[in-house]
Amino acid sequence: MAAGSGEVLLEVDGGVAIVTLNAPDRRNALTPTMADELIATFDEVDARPEVGALVVRAVGKSFCAGGDIATLTAAGKDPAAPETYDGMGRIYDSFYRLGQVRVPTVAAVRGSAVGAGMNMLLATDLRIVARDARLLCGFLKRGMHPGGGHFVLLSRLIGREAAAAMALFGEEINGSRAVELGLAWESVDDAAVEDRALELAARVAADPELARVAVGNFRKETVTPVSWEIATQFERPSQMWSMRRSAG
C-alpha cells in the first residue's frame, strides 16, 4: 500500500512490515513531505499488533542520498525562516521516529547512504548491507555541520576513532568494512540483501507480542547503557510475564 505521494510504501507480510523508500529519481533523498509520510507509516506500523518486525528498504541505486538538495539549499538561504526550520526538523523527526518504532527494525541497504541517509540506517536495530554499498557521512564535504544526532548515532556503533574517521575526516566505507567496524551485522551480494533482512525479521516477528516487549528493554539497556543491576530490574518483570504466558 502507498502513503500519500507514493514515495513511501508499506506492505505487511507474515507479521513483517516492509517500508520502502520509493523516490529513485532523486536517490530517495528526504524532503519534508516524504519525512511526514515516513512518520505516518511508522505510526501505522505501531498501531498494528500483528506486526512483529519492520524492514526498511529502498528502490533504485541508492538507499538514501540524505536531505533533498532543494530543501538544503532553501535552508542555506535562511535557516531561521519558520518554514525552513520546520522542514529540516521534520526530516530529523523521520529517522528519530524510526528509532522509536515499537518492533525490532532492520535496514536492508543497497547502493549509497549519505548524510541523513546514514542516520536512517543507523536508527534501526540491525543492518544488512550489500558488499559494494557506499556508506559515507558526507556532511562536511557539503559544507554542512552534521545534524540529527549524527555523532551519537555513529559513535555508539563504531566507537570514537572510526566515527571521527567517517564524520570528521570523510572516510567512505563499503559493506564489508561496515561489518568489520560493527556498523552492520552482515554484508552480502546486492541481490541477497533484502531476502536476508526479511529472513531475520520474520524470525523475530513470529511472536509479535514478545518482540515488542523484548526490543523495548533491549534499547533501554544498550542504546543508553545501564548497570547490570538496573538491567536485571528491567528484564525481570518481562521475563516473568513471558514465562507465565508460555505456561498458560
Rank of each mutant, 00 (worst) to 15 (best):
D78V: 09
D78Y: 11
D78A: 14
D78L: 11
D78E: 13
D78S: 13
P79A: 12
A80Q: 14
A80F: 12
A80W: 10
A81E: 15
A81M: 12
A81C: 10
P82G: 09
P82T: 11
P82D: 13
E83H: 12
E83D: 13
T84S: 14
T84F: 10
Y85A: 12
D86S: 13
D86W: 08
D86I: 07
G87C: 04
M88Y: 09
M88G: 09
M88F: 13
G89D: 07
R90K: 15
I91C: 04
Y92D: 11
Y92H: 11
D93Y: 03
D93F: 01
D93Q: 09
D93G: 08
S94C: 07
S94T: 05
F95I: 02
F95H: 03
F95T: 00
Y96W: 11
Y96K: 13
Y96V: 14
Y96I: 14
Y96F: 13
R97F: 03
L98Y: 01
L98A: 03
L98H: 01
G99Q: 02
Q100M: 12
Q100I: 05
R102N: 15
V103H: 02
V103F: 03
P104A: 06
P104K: 04
P104Q: 04
T105D: 02
T105Q: 05
T105A: 13
V106R: 04
V106F: 14
V106S: 06
V106P: 02
V106D: 02
V106H: 06
V106I: 15
A107N: 03
A107Q: 04
A107W: 03
A108S: 11
A108I: 04
V109P: 04
V109E: 04
V109S: 05
R110T: 14
R110F: 06
R110Q: 12
R110M: 08
R110E: 10
G111K: 03
G111C: 06
G111P: 01
S112D: 10
S112A: 15
A113C: 07
A113Q: 03
V114C: 08
V114R: 14
G115H: 07
G115Q: 06
G115I: 03
G115S: 15
A116V: 07
A116P: 00
A116T: 04
G117K: 01
G117D: 02
G117Y: 01
M118L: 15
M118A: 05
N119Q: 01
N119P: 00
N119L: 00
M120Q: 08
M120D: 04
L121E: 02
L121F: 15
L121C: 04
L121W: 03
L121A: 05
L121T: 02
L122S: 00
A123D: 01
D125G: 02
D125Y: 01
L126H: 11
L126W: 12
R127G: 08
I128S: 07
I128F: 08
V129S: 09
V129C: 10
A130C: 08
R131Y: 09
R131D: 15
R131S: 15
D132Q: 12
A133D: 10
R134V: 13
R134H: 11
R134A: 13
R134F: 12
L135F: 10
L135Y: 08
L136G: 14
L136Y: 11
C137D: 15
C137L: 08
C137A: 15
G138K: 06
F139D: 10
F139P: 01
F139N: 06
L140Y: 15
L140Q: 11
